[in-house]
Each structure stands twice: as structure tokens, then as C-alpha cells.
């Protein structure tokens, strides 16, 4: 038994037949070959598979692929544009917010939502809001730093922020 799903991924429309049990994370990796989204656990605890579904950060292992029918999805591969990193990606490089890179995709996607939706982020609030994403390498110190730096870029209303808005609505 297969379901037909039709959705937009990083601005590209895709149609596929999927089994009902296929998770969105599996769909992205195995059916679309988009391996930037990672799978780090099997209990929806780690956040490595986080993507944006219609602008909301969602752990893609918590959704079946067919539930994403009609949505617009942004993955880590769709964040940069015109050869330029998204401000969150740039802040991660600037502040050494990643080491092995495995949790990074989901971490970055969660933070994109965070800096878009919250004003007045400080260290304490960032630490609370990021508790759905596990990183084993960095001790979070530089992730928090990168998040606050990216939030500053958003607050200052730079061109980069506008670029992200455009991207997310595409």
C-alpha cells in the first residue's frame, strides 16, 4: 500500500509514492537522496533531523511523509542562497559552533526558527529553547554564542535577514 505525496522541498516540487510508515526524515534521506538531514536517534529526542515545515522547526522523525503532503519544507541544503550562507550558518562558522557536524543540520534549523520568532533572546532563554537538540561535541558554549550573534544580525534588520524571509516563504 502506498500513499502519494506532493510537497515542496527547498522550493522544488516533488511527488512520490510512499508507504504509510515512511517517516519524513527517511523520505528526505532515502527517497529524495537529501542526506543533509541526519538521524541521530529513534525516540525523537536528539533533534538532528529538524527541518522547517511551513516555517516551523519540526523533528522530521515525528512526522510521516504523507503528513507532509501539501507543505513547504526547508532543509539544511536549502538555507544558503546565491552562494551565501544564511546568518545562522555564518555565525556557526565564525563562533566555532560545530565540531563533528552531525547535529549541526538540525541545530541550525532549530536556531533559524528561534531567531526568526523570538525577540530579546539571551543566554538563559537560548539554553532553554535549544533543549530539544543534543550536541555531544561542543558543550553548547559556542552554539549559544553563535545563536546570540545570529539573533543580533536579525535584530539589526540586515539584508541577510530579509534573504531568509524570502527563502522560507518560497
Amino acid at each position: 500500500m502506498a500513499n502519494k505525496v506532493s510537497l515542496t522541498v527547498n522550493g522544488r516540487s516533488v511527488q512520490r509514492e510512499v508507504e504509510p510508515r515512511t517517516l519524513l526524515a527517511t523520505f528526505l534521506r532515502e527517497h529524495l537522496g537529501m542526506t543533509g538531514t541526519h538521524i541521530g536517534c529513534d525516540t525523537s529526542q536528539c533533534g538532528c533531523c529538524t527541518v522547517l515545515v511551513d516555517g516551523d522547526a519540526v523533528k522530521s522523525c515525528t512526522m510521516f511523509a504523507f503528513q507532509a503532503n501539501g507543505t513547504s519544507i526547508t532543509t539544511i541544503e536549502g538555507l544558503a542562497s546565491d552562494g551565501r550562507m544564511h546568518p545562522v550558518q555564518a555565525a556557526f562558522q565564525e563562533h566555532h559552533g560545530l565540531q563533528c557536524g552531525f547535529c549541526t543540520s538540525g541545530m541550525v534549523m532549530s536556531i533559524v526558527e528561534l531567531v526568526e520568532k523570538y525577540d530579546g533572546l539571551d543566554e538563559a532563554s537560548v539554553r532553554e529553547l535549544l533543549d530539544g537538540n543534543i550536541c555531544r561535541c561542543t558543550g553548547y558554549h559556542n552554539i549559544v554564542k553563535a545563536t546570540l550573534a545570529a539573533a543580533d544580525v536579525y535584530r539589526s534588520g540586515s539584508a541577510a535577514a530579509t534573504h531568509t524571509d524570502t527563502l522560507l516563504r518560497s
Partner: peptide, 14 residues
């Protein structure tokens, strides 16, 4: 020095 390896991880190209 900023890390050479970061770009591919940040772009989902690991």
C-alpha cells in the same frame, strides 16, 4: 583560523 571543514557541514554536504 576558521575551520576549512565547516562549510560542507553547514551546507548539509557532509
Amino acid at each position: 583560523v576558521k575551520r576549512t571543514e565547516d562549510a560542507r557541514f553547514l551546507l548539509g554536504k557532509g
